[in-house]
Structure formats: C-alpha cells, structure tokens
C-alpha cells in the first residue's frame, strides 16, 4: 500500500470517532453546564479568596477548568473502546484492510478530533472570558488542545485495549483523574504547592501540568511567563518527548499485542 493509501485509510479511521458525535448530545450539554458553572460562579468566588503573588488566579483557574474538561473528554475515549470491544467492533476494525499502525494513529487522531470538538464550545468561552484577541493565539490554543486531546485519547484507548473491562477501566480512570488532575498545576499554581515537596515534584513531572501550562502560556503569555511549571522551551520539549513515547508505546501495543475477542 502506498503512503497515499495509508493517509486515506488514516482519515477514514479518524472519521469513525467523529461520526459518533451525535450520541453525546446529553453528555456534552451536561459538561458545558458544569464548565459554565465552574468558570462563571466558582471560579469568580475562588479567585476572590485566593491570592498567589501577582498571578490573576481567575485567569489561571479558567484555563485549568478547560484542561480538566479536555482531559475527561479524552479519557471518555477509553470507555468508547471498551464498549466497542463488548460490541465486537474492535474485531471488525482489526479485520479491515488497514495497517495496525494506521489504525492506532487514526483512532488516536479521531478520538482527539472528537474530544476537541466536544470541548470546542468551552474553548470559545475561555477565549471570550480571557479576552484572547490574537488570531494566532486562538489558533495555537485550538491546535494545542487538539494535540493534547489526541495524545490523551490515544493513551486512554491503549489502556482500555489492555484492560478490556469497563469495571477495571472505571477504577483506573478514577485513580488517574485524581492523580493526574489533582497532582498537577490544573488548579494549583506551582508556587502555591512548592511547600509540599512530594506534591511539588510530582506536579513538575506530570505531563498534564505541562499541557495546561502550555495552554496558559499561549492564552495569557505576559501574565503567566514566570509562573509556569517550567520555561516554554522545556515544556515544549517535555511534551514532544511525552507524545513520542506515548505514540511509540501505543503502536507497539497495537501492532504486537492487541487482538480481538472480548471476554476471552
């Protein structure tokens, strides 16, 4: 198969997840309501109570709330895969004339597009609330959100393919949400947690911290420059390395280990 054929297959596989948007109408409405409540009510209240140096905590919180939504939207893709396992759809996809690597990347990108589209209304709220006026910054926010969503979706799908159980996945997702979201700079500035060494260093190496701070550096660069988990260059390198490792692991898993047969 030529590169052109592979790219065509990649686009079609990615479209598989995008097709499912309509099933999430109620879920999206709930998430959007939750987000508006977080940003327009709790965010304002908390920002009045919290003071971290010169940092505008409200702006910090708004981006964090968006990242939390993007994270959970991406993790939902893991549940989708388990459901597809149960319905035999993974068997179906594994039988298609598509290379395993193309299938893995296509599903991760499809999951990313899907999670990104799910969180797009919330991204628009972030842009409006923070007053991001530069088109390049808006596009960079969108692109970064899409890349993060794809990476997280790919990981969630890979984990789901290994676990093959909605119960085990629920437990793991609950734990990962607690650890990765809470022990990160999503809601707590790195300066504010520097007093607790374990918490501080875990947050420093948490990829979610780097993702959310990358978004903040794009959305509110001047105000956030000195408060991020690392310098912009280090964040970029960290995320590139993380994405590279995640993609390689997923490809290895799907290529060598994954096979059909839910319940076997």
């Amino acid at each position: 198969m030529s590169l052109k054929d592979d790219l065509r297959a990649l686009a079609l596989v990615a479209f598989w997840d995008v097709r499912k948007l309509r099933r999430y109408t109620f879920f999206l409405a709930m998430r959007f309501s939750w987000f508006l409540l977080q940003v327009l009510v709790f965010g304002l209240l908390v920002a009045n109570m919290v003071s971290v140096g010169d940092l505008d905590y409200y702006k910090f919180y708004v981006v964090g709330a968006f990242m939390a939504v993007l994270f959970s939207m991406s993790m939902v893709k893991g549940h989708d895969i388990v459901e597809e396992f149960e319905d035999g759809l993974v068997d179906y996809q594994l039988s298609l004339p598509v290379k395993r690597k193309v299938l893995a990347i296509g599903r991760a990108i499809g999951g990313g597009i899907s999670a990104f589209l799910h969180s797009l209304p919330m991204l628009i709220v972030v842009v409006l609330v923070l007053g991001v006026s530069s088109l390049s910054a808006v596009l960079a926010l969108a692109l970064a959100s899409f890349v993060f969503a794809s990476s997280l979706s790919g990981i969630a799908m890979g984990v789901a393919l290994i676990l093959r159980s909605s119960d085990r996945l629920d437990i793991l997702m609950g734990v990962s949400d607690s650890l990765l979201v809470r022990i990160s700079t999503i809601f707590y500035p790195i300066a504010a947690i520097s007093g607790v060494a374990v918490y501080y260093y875990l947050a420093k190496v948490n990829p979610v911290s780097h993702m959310v701070d990358a978004l903040r550096l794009i959305a509110i660069p001047e105000e956030y420059q000195g408060s991020a988990v690392s310098s912009p260059e280090v964040i970029l390198m960290f995320l590139a390395g993380f994405a590279f490792t995640a993609i390689l692991s997923s490809l290895f898993l799907l290529d060598r280990k994954i096979e059909g047969g839910y319940g076997r």
Binding site: R19, K20, L89, S95
Partner: peptide, 17 residues
Amino acid sequence: RRLVGIAFQEPKALWVD
C-alpha cells in the same frame, strides 16, 4: 488483510450507526 474479508456471525455496528 488486503486479501481477506469477513462477515461476522454477529453484525458489527454502533447503535448510533
């Protein structure tokens, strides 16, 4: 996979398809 195709015993589709 380029040479083989299979129609499964149980139909495979998403319920929203």
